[in-house]
């Protein structure tokens, strides 16, 4: 082995939304992890974490997808996802999915123990701090429910964002409230979701910040989509993009220009 000992062998769990909708978040994650001293691998057989099936009650499909994830991410020091929701699924819910299956449980416990949400991994495990990143704007951070409550991610992204020069963080009211995304919830109960995202948006806009960042693309697509529909001017970015110095690129729903 020629790699220096402290190089962490990290598998990136891209997540389905990043893969399809906003690959730049994945590349931002790669850039940050490399800067934090990690070697990055992207296992090819990954698709999604299985949460959609799991939360819809289709336990069998969820188990099959989870088994695939468990196999795909064997042998790495860490598994890191730019999403608290997907990381939370792996860390906390795979155990419930295979409750009573002792043979699977060993692998699941082992995987759960080395699976992290991106910002908490950078901050807590790598002791990383962005250097020479500048973005002159005001920003408000939305805590996704799974990051906040399942993965206990709250201060880490704020600490990292605090190291970005020129960035002023403006906290919104009721920041622990859900944005109304909830996976298929926003499709099945769109009117309730609308009311929730509107409440969220009013608080975000009232913060006076020009940019919104969060660590989960689901929330961001929901909020950005609603902001666009309402014609409200707020730029929406994944926190990884801002930290990786990609804060100047167009936000969600803004096209290429």
């Amino acid at each position: 082995m020629s790699a220096p000992k402290e190089k962490k062998n990290v598998a990136l769990f891209v997540t389905c939304l990043v893969d399809l909708n906003r690959p730049s978040v994945g590349f931002a994650a790669v850039k940050l992890l490399e800067a934090a001293g990690c070697t990055i691998m992207v296992p090819e057989v990954q698709t999604c974490c299985g949460q959609i099936a799991y939360n819809s009650g289709d336990k069998e499909s969820a188990k099959e997808i989870a088994s695939q994830v468990i196999r795909a991410f064997q042998g790495f020091d860490y598994v890191v996802a730019p999403s608290g929701s997907c990381a939370g699924m792996v860390r906390h819910h795979y155990k419930e999915l295979f409750e009573g299956d002792d043979t699977m449980m060993v692998a699941i416990e082992e995987l759960a123990g080395r699976t992290y949400e991106l910002t908490s991994f950078l901050h807590d495990i790598c002791g990383y701090r962005p250097e020479d990143v500048r973005l002159d704007t005001t920003l408000t951070y939305h805590d996704s429910c799974s990051s906040l409550r399942e993965m206990k991610v709250r201060d880490q992204p704020r600490a990292l964002l605090g190291a970005v020069e020129g960035l002023e963080i403006k906290e919104a009211e009721d920041r622990e409230a859900c944005c109304g995304f909830g996976g298929t919830f926003c499709l099945k109960y769109s009117e309730i979701s609308e009311s929730m995202v509107d409440t969220k948006i009013e608080n975000l806009l009232a913060s006076g910040a020009g940019t919104l960042a969060a660590g989960d693309l689901g929330c961001l697509m929901n909020i950005a989509g609603r902001l666009k529909r309402r014609g409200a001017p707020m730029k929406v970015m994944h926190v990884a993009e801002i930290l990786a110095g990609m804060g100047e690129k167009p936000g969600l729903g803004e096209g290429d220009s």
Binding site: P23, E44, M221, V236, G255
Partner: peptide, 29 residues
């Protein structure tokens, strides 16, 4: 060029409330 889709096929629940932020075009993988 708009960057959003106003009416997403088969996804009335989404489009009745929000625009759909368009993908960048090529997947991460």
């Amino acid at each position: 060029k708009k960057g959003v889709i106003r009416k997403l096929p088969l996804m009335k629940g989404w489009s009745s409330v929000r625009d759909f932020p368009a993908p960048e075009g090529t997947t991460f993988m």
